[in-house]
Design a protein around this nucleic acid. Structure first.
Lengths: 207, 207
DNA sequence: CGTCGAATCGTCCGAAAGTTTGAATCGACC
DNA sequence: GGTCGATTCAAACTTTCGGACGATTCGACG
């Protein structure tokens, strides 16, 4: 018997998953959580073998954060990510946080159930499209943007000018330009707007 | 008895909605559709009082398109939009397409069921947050960007330079600048990156 | 201890971008 | 028939960006 915790902020999705699992004899939905903190609280009490976790909660810690916390417990349950979003950064973040698998919400039910059984059994379960993405990422790893560069890039994406960025980060405009020049070469572009597009594509900034 | 068609490309969401409605005596889920064309086909055969429609389908016509087609039938069912996304343009587009209501997927189940009954009874059902958004939109209507301006803005958002935009649209660079100047004043900004941010916020270009 | 990347700041210069002003055409609308 | 917005273009001007150097500091790593 696999004891499952469903963590998703959409009641409809929770009901759908519960209906799906109720039809299987070896799957038992023992709890639901509408937020990351709720999910962690449930796991602290034990009695859960596997968590189905959304990445996007309206408020509070993200699914990746919750995953990290859960995996830090003693004898933690496995965590399977089930989300709509599939940018590289999301997936990498989740896997690094300790997720055993990554599924997209348009996964067919039979695949989903198979993945749940596989994950509970200790195997890794990645949606094929996700696995391919991870593979392609391994071949051309993220142009390692430093934290500072990502910060600057985020402000560029928000429409700030170099001068404004300098003011807000307490930098000289020259430094901002310097960061931007590095960002440009790392992303293979030659203008701020193109950099924003590229950053969105690789998931380096909020979509 | 309200006969319901669920149109959503996510099996999990369909299962969730079905479970939700099955618990109500006066609601009967008579069919499911995983795409816009499927939904329209079902409605052409009649036997449906209300369609719960997602806006985002992976392939094929959008939920708004499907809504337009359904509302163009003889004696059409009512259409209730149920979606994740809530940009102004999405909502406006759906309402203009003939939707009787607009709900977000994080709506609590009881509200959802109430909205379904209201819509089937002929009333309009808008989520409070959505109604507020429409209201605010009425107060400050979309700065009327012309089709050409939207076209230019889209290319700016894609990272093109003024010269490139001119080449691709067979315009002089002066004309591109002229369009941009108008766009800036209409959006109340003073740079291309800010214009892209503003355009995203009001839903004038792809999110 | 030397090396390396990250982060900081600087100058100089050409290329884009943005501002201002003006103007022509065209279709829609009253 | 006149007005108005959309679209097109132009010249001149200012500001911002981006490229191409270099330079310093500092912590990490072997």
């Amino acid at each position: 018997m696999i004891r499952i915790l469903i963590a998703d902020d959409h009641p409809v999705v929770r009901a759908g998953l519960r209906a799906l699992f109720d039809a299987e004899e070896d799957l038992d939905v023992v709890a639901e959580a509408a937020s990351g903190v709720e999910a962690v609280a449930h796991c602290e009490r034990g009695e859960v073998d596997l968590v189905l976790m959304d990445l996007q909660f309206g408020v509070g810690p993200s699914g990746a954060d919750a995953t990290r916390m859960i995996r830090g417990l003693d004898d933690p349950p496995r965590v399977l990510i089930l989300t709509n979003y599939d940018t590289d950064a999301d997936i990498l973040g989740a896997v690094e946080a300790g997720a055993s698998g990554y599924l997209l919400k348009d996964t067919p039910p039979d695949e989903l159930i198979a993945a749940v059984r596989a994950a509970a059994g200790g195997a890794s379960a990645l949606a094929p499209s996700v696995a391919g993405r991870l593979e392609s990422r391994r071949r051309s790893p993220t142009p390692g943007l430093s934290p500072r560069e990502i910060e600057v890039l985020g402000m560029v994406a928000a429409g700030r000018s170099n001068r404004e960025i300098g003011r807000e980060l307490f930098l000289s405009e020259a430094t901002v330009k310097s960061h931007l020049a590095h960002i440009f070469t790392k992303l293979g572009v030659n203008s701020r707007t193109r950099a924003v597009v590229a950053a969105r594509e690789i998931g380096a900034i909020r979509p």
